[in-house]
């Protein structure tokens, strides 16, 4: 394996190990997700038709809000004991750090999404199994994009004083193309239509993912150094 790959993997290993031990993000995210489900249940009531039309939006609203909490914390550990400075002093391409962080965030978000999707199915009595394959594709592409842009903005705001305010304010507008595509594609696949019917939205998702990934990889060194 190349030195670049080893460095990305060791960042991933470090972040997952830290999260497994502290459980700071996962515990908060699971609790937050449950809270959202209860709130949505109260807001929508028992009207099944209403629920069916709102479900894709609610699902992604849950992911985005959970992502704001989880992604926003991804560089907090680097601030303790000036580890950020240590990362800056390591020789080599700094985008490996971004890639490792992105993979760790992707895995954490995926875990939260799997639990949320399962709970949505149970809470709202929705048959997600029949659409599981196409839904997985949409979730995968959406999560890559959310993690890519979220990791980048988390790094940008990690060192500023008002980061809790700035992070969502900066991130949410940039996520609009992703959310448009993911909600529309989810609507199509949960409506029982084939994945091919969501091709236009999936193309937009793939395009947005590539753009966010490339921007993240190219700009991370400057963000770390700023």
């Amino acid at each position: 394996m190349t030195a670049y790959g080893r460095r990305a993997l060791v960042v991933l290993w470090k972040d997952l190990l830290t999260e497994r031990r502290s459980k700071e993000s996962l515990n908060a995210l699971f609790f937050f997700s449950l809270l959202l489900l209860f709130l949505f249940q109260f807001a929508l009531g028992p009207d099944r038709e209403r629920l069916q039309s709102a479900l894709p939006g609610l699902l992604w609203l849950g992911f985005v809000l959970a992502g704001l909490l989880g992604l926003g914390r991804s560089f907090i550990a680097e601030r303790d004991n000036d580890c950020w400075e240590g990362l800056l002093l390591t020789p080599g391409d700094k985008s490996a750090i971004y890639l490792g962080k992105l993979l760790a965030n992707f895995i954490l978000m995926t875990v939260v999404e799997v639990v949320l999707v399962f709970l949505f199915g149970v809470f709202y009595n929705v048959d997600l199994w029949s659409a599981l394959g196409p839904l997985t594709v949409v979730l995968f592409l959406g999560t890559v994009g959310l993690s890519a842009v979220g990791t980048l903005f988390a790094a940008m705001t990690a060192q500023v004083r008002a980061r809790e305010l700035l992070f969502p304010v900066l991130l949410l507008p940039v996520q609009v193309p992703l959310l448009l595509a993911t909600v529309s594609a989810t609507q199509i696949v949960l409506g029982g239509q084939p994945l091919a019917d969501a091709a236009a939205w999936l193309k937009l998702l793939v395009g947005a993912d590539i753009v966010y990934l490339v921007i993240g990889l190219l700009t991370f060194e400057f963000i770390l150094d700023a």
């Binding site: 030195a3 080893r6 060791v10 470090k14 830290t18 550990a77 004991n81 000036d82 580890c83 080599g92």
Partner: peptide, 25 residues
Amino acid sequence: VAHGSYVYEDLTALENLRFWATMGG
């Protein structure tokens, strides 16, 4: 070795060294 120790609190001493050694190639 600056004011901050560059130590991750939730890693062991050995894991901290493993991380930084790998990062340094």
